[in-house]
């Protein structure tokens, strides 16, 4: 197996998943819609006072992003499991972690990236300042790939479980707590005009750590559960 061929598998799968997402948009549009609705419920529940909203904005946006990511993650391997494509992936001689990386990257493009693109709208809805929004953007950029990777571990573990969506959240949400803590702290710090380099470095370190280790866990989980059924 030469490098070029493996590269072909990576881009081929990436393109396949993006193509599928374009042809069946509901699987990623719905979580996105959920994200926007969930955030806009808070002003209705708490009150439109801009200062209060500004105070809770980082937490609200990040928690909603977390929940939306969990909703979207469920479809990552399930469709492949149900139509047998996962068996083809598992019986492929190509390195599993590379295949998994392609799938997670594709999934981030359709679930993580739209959240980032929508962030200015949400910042306006929640009366965030420009500094706050900028920090939010940076934390989302560093944080959503971590959510995708951790979520993929969960999605791989529950792939054979019917209606495993809730279980997925139960497994993965506790693991996402550090991301939530550092990201919201960064946005809060930025709104009072302080430097957020520390929080961003911590998030970047988390990202590097997750990118390195989670493909191994995802492949292991798929091998453990994906062949059944």
């Amino acid at each position: 197996m030469d490098r070029e061929q493996s590269h072909g598998v990576f881009t081929g799968l990436l393109r396949r998943d993006l193509k599928l997402a374009v042809r069946a948009p509901s699987q990623w549009l719905n979580p996105l819609l959920f994200f926007v609705i969930a955030v806009s419920l808070f002003p209705l529940g708490i009150g439109p006072e801009p200062n209060t909203l500004r105070e809770i904005a980082p937490g609200v946006i990040w928690v909603a992003a977390l929940l939306a990511a969990m909703l979207a993650q469920d479809s990552l391997f399930r469709a492949d499991f149900e139509d047998g494509s996962l068996e083809q992936i598992l019986t492929s001689p190509h390195p599993m972690s590379m295949i998994v990386a392609a799938k997670v990257l594709a999934h981030w493009f359709i679930t993580g990236l739209p959240v980032i693109i929508l962030s200015p709208v949400l910042a306006v809805l929640m009366s965030l300042s420009f500094e706050g929004w900028w920090a939010l953007l940076l934390t989302l950029l560093l944080g959503t790939p971590i959510l995708s990777l951790l979520g993929a571990v969960g999605a791989a573990l529950v792939v054979s479980v019917k209606r495993g969506g809730v279980l997925l959240s139960l497994l993965v949400l506790p693991l996402c707590i550090p991301v939530l803590i550092f990201a919201t702290a960064a946005v809060k710090t930025a709104t009072v005009g302080l430097s957020i380099e520390g929080q961003l470095s911590l998030l970047a370190a988390l990202l590097a750590f997750t990118v390195t280790l989670s493909p191994i866990a995802i492949s292991g989980a798929l091998r453990a559960t994906g062949g059944g059924g």
Binding site: V9, G12, L20, D83, G84, S85, Q88, P93, H94
Partner: peptide, 22 residues
């Protein structure tokens, strides 16, 4: 389970199969 994607054409499916194979 056939391992073909409903939302891909027959040819696209085979292209992926060919990629995944050794």
């Amino acid at each position: 389970k056939h391992g073909t994607k409903d939302e891909l054409t027959a040819r696209e499916n085979l292209d992926i199969d060919q990629l995944l194979a050794g």
